[in-house]
């Protein structure tokens, strides 16, 4: 297991990224994880499996919904879509994340000078 080498995500980060990605377009699990990995230029090493419990959480809270469909590679896959509640949740999460990031950045900048 390479858990120790993995750059830990803070709680909720994975969910936020999933919601953000799904906001652009509905995707199935595999495509979703590939997209996140690619977009982050593999800076974030995510265990692919860890996506699924996160998706289950989002499903349970009805922030996303899923439907079985056929993928571009002609597979029977579950395609996830953002719900209205999911969109609202994402907005709130992003804004609070940005505030947090700004705070952290300021502290880090002060420390350098």
């Amino acid at each position: 297991m390479k858990n120790s080498a993995q750059r830990d995500l803070f709680p909720g980060a994975l969910e936020m990224m999933i919601l953000r990605t799904l906001k652009r377009q509905p995707l199935h699990g595999y495509a979703l994880v590939q997209h996140i990995k690619r977009t982050s230029d593999d800076l974030l090493q995510i265990e692919e499996g860890s996506l699924y419990p996160a998706l289950q959480r989002l499903l349970k809270e009805e922030l996303v919904k899923a439907e079985w469909g056929i993928s571009s590679t002609n597979r029977r896959v579950r395609i996830y879509k953002l719900t209205a509640a999911g969109a609202k949740h994402l907005e709130r999460q992003v804004s609070s994340f940005e505030k947090m990031l700004e705070g952290i950045t300021r502290v880090l900048a002060r420390g350098e000078s």
Partner: peptide, 16 residues
């Protein structure tokens, strides 16, 4: 790349 399948399945179920 995927990780522990059993673990993932269990974590996924536990959500419910």
């Amino acid at each position: 790349e995927f990780g522990n399948v059993t673990q993932v399945e269990r974590d996924g179920r536990e959500v419910w």
